[in-house]
Design a protein around this nucleic acid. Structure first.
Length: 615
DNA sequence: CGTGAGCTCACATCCCGACA
DNA sequence: TGTCGGGATGTGAGCTCACG
């Protein structure tokens, strides 16, 4: 039983199936064998046909009764053998026919029983004690029950939302706090189908009921398939419970003339109990593998750490699985999706990535050439330490919308003492390559050697990284936006880590630092209230730092390694000799010796073969 | 059809007892 | 005390099913 909670957990006052069963057996034992102070001994039976629970108190009770046979004979005249103890328990179990579907006795008198499905499904039993309940329970006059989420900020009728997305997010947030999940419902489109719909419905995820199987499409628990070779295979169908129970809670939105949406109907009553506060973290709305976490999963997978181990790493990092916001299964599914996304396109992706770099980096020598013929200095300003050139680039002229050509001018600042140079075109900052304007200024300043500090390691023959993972020194120089995000993320981690390292001894300052970060987050939240939703594919592409290949022309060659990897433990010489000693020697037909070889692998034969090869 | 999640296989790793 | 064998358990990856 999935819902089973350890009955011994005294701090937990929540309703549990096991506790109810425990209570029942305890009552029976107290009633029938009052002075024995027997505690219920309950197990899950070893065999499925025995039912849901097995009560093993029989032997314990029988042993105690045998200690004082005469006294027991007086008190329990009907008990003559262990099976009678079982019968006694069974009799009382059967009296509770609302709760117990079936009870029987096995072996020496163990009682096994099955719980009634109707009893388990009864809502009142699943209603947790009042203080643990999320929603407010309301019995209605006609006897049906309903639950209302206890949330202060609810989308009442008449509330106006700018877009459907905002409305959905608001309802989802309300649902998360309230303890239920949201599903998108139908919509009524406007005449122009490209426009946003006129009406849109959002429902509780338990809305509706599971549709009955269509005639002729009825699926039994087991079905048979026959493959082309005529071999029939029995497929066992999995049983999956539907959570739909015809709940009517919903949010209906209607488009206003100003393209905004208003709540036209809001039903807040649910016909089922809501999720406990403790379990809200398991709701889909609370589970989200954020981009940084996806990044971590991806990076760890690069060093052969799979999703489950990565999830455990996250658990340690965040101080408990409830703070991760994702289950291990979420991590596994993400990894599977990522692998699916890559598929056989890995080679294509690598090539595309390199080609996209080529797009950004044109021929570098051209840039020096262009500095000679396309760039001219318009003015030079000189102060104590630096020179500021205005450079006119005749190739970079651009036209505005009114057809007027605008001359491209760039400002280059040069500090001769430290050979510091910066151009307003920001090419170096973007791609790590100096621009033609800088070359022009360097030439004018009679600098005839390439400034060492502007020669990045990656353009040199030492470009191979020392480590597998390197933190980029210059984030802006990364070639595409996806790589930029990863780079910035690493920089942020680094900054935070550095700050904490410095502040680790000063808790007060660390707290101030944390508060400052919270303030920054608040600013971001005001700026971007809802995190933009990226599609799965976009997320995978971003995580890998690639764009999804449109077509696949390059497929990685299949690689067959010579021989196979031995999974056997390495044997020492002594061990090999020991194994050899157990074998019986045999007579070799080639050399005539009695040894541990035969005519096929005779050393003399091998020797003669080698000589032949040499000839 | 997309997706969450169960099932299974094969391999890796852990752990415990036996033995040198 | 160290090493080995082998069972138990953990894990990654692929396959599959069924809900929505």
């Amino acid at each position: 039983m999935d819902m089973e909670v350890d009955a011994s957990d005294g701090d937990n006052n929540r309703w549990s199936l096991r506790k109810e069963v425990d209570k029942l057996i305890k009552g029976i034992l107290e009633h029938s064998f009052s002075e024995l102070e027997e505690q219920p001994i309950l197990f899950f039976p070893s065999k499925e046909e025995y039912g849901d629970y097995q009560c093993d108190n029989v032997l314990s009770i029988w042993t105690q009764l045998r200690e004082n046979p005469e006294e027991s004979e007086q008190k329990y005249p009907h008990i003559k053998k262990p099976t009678d103890v079982g019968e006694e328990i069974k009799k009382h179990l059967e009296k509770r026919d609302d709760m117990i579907k079936e009870a029987s006795i096995h072996d020496v008198g163990f009682v096994t029983f099955t719980l009634s499905g109707k009893w388990m499904a009864e809502d009142s039993l699943f209603t947790p004690p009042h203080d643990h309940q999320v929603g407010i329970f309301q019995p209605t006059p006609n006897g049906t029950k309903c639950w209302v989420p206890k949330v202060s900020n609810k989308p009442v009728k008449g509330t106006v939302f700018d877009t459907l997305e905002i409305a959905l997010n608001a309802y989802k947030e309300y649902a998360r706090e309230g303890g239920f999940e949201v599903r998108k419902g139908g919509q009524k489109n406007s005449k122009n189908s490209k426009d946003e719909p006129n009406n849109k419905y959002f429902y509780c995820v338990r809305q509706g009921v599971k549709p009955p199987p269509k005639d002729g499409n009825q699926k039994s628990d087991k079905s048979q398939t026959t493959n082309p070779l005529g071999v029939t295979k029995v497929i066992k169908r999995r049983k999956r419970a539907s959570c739909r129970c015809g709940c009517n809670a919903q949010l209906r939105l209607k488009k206003l003339p100003n393209e905004k949406y208003t709540v036209s109907k809001f039903i807040e009553k649910h016909n089922h109990s809501l999720v406990y506060e403790d379990d809200i973290k398991y709701l889909r709305a609370s589970r989200r593998l954020t981009f940084p976490k996806q990044q971590l999963l991806n990076q760890l997978s690069n060093v052969n750490i799979g999703p489950v181990k990565s999830w455990k790493v996250l658990k340690e990092m965040y101080g408990g699985f409830e703070y991760i916001g994702a289950t291990d299964v979420d991590c596994k599914n993400y990894k599977r999706g990522l692998n699916e996304f890559i598929g056989e396109r890995d080679a294509q992706m690598v090539v595309d990535k390199l080609l996209s770099r080529e797009e950004y980096f044109d021929n570098f020598s051209d840039e020096i050439f262009e500095s000679l013929f396309r760039c001219f200095s318009l003015s030079v300003q000189e102060d104590d330490t630096s020179l500021t050139y205005m450079i006119r680039d005749i190739e970079a002229d651009y036209t505005t919308i009114h057809g007027v050509s605008v001359e491209a001018k760039y400002e280059v600042t040069y500090v001769p003492a430290s050979v510091e140079i910066k151009c307003s075109c920001l090419k170096y900052e973007c791609y790590g390559l100096l621009c033609r304007h800088i070359f022009y200024v360097l030439r004018m300043s009679k600098v005839f050697h390439f400034p060492r500090k502007y020669l990045q390691r990656r353009w040199s023959k030492y470009a191979l990284p020392n480590k597998i993972v390197t933190r980029p020194v210059d984030v802006a120089s990364l070639s595409n936006p996806a790589e930029c995000v990863n780079g910035v993320l690493r920089e942020i981690y680094g900054t935070v880590e550095d700050s904490v390292t410095r502040l680790v001894t000063d808790i007060q300052k660390l707290q101030i630092y944390k508060d400052d970060l919270d303030t920054l987050l608040e600013h971001v939240k005001i700026d971007i209230p809802i995190a933009p939703e990226m599609s799965k594919k976009e997320l995978y592409a971003a995580a890998l730092g690639v764009t999804e290949p449109v077509e696949v022309n390059i497929i990685a060659p299949e690689c067959h390694n010579k021989g196979s990897v031995s999974v056997k433990r390495h044997q020492t010489q002594a061990e090999k000799a020991f194994i050899q000693s157990k074998k019986n020697p045999r007579k070799c037909n080639t050399c005539g010796e009695i040894a541990y070889h035969d005519s096929r692998n005779c050393p003399t034969k091998k020797k003669s073969n080698d000589e032949e090869m040499d000839d």
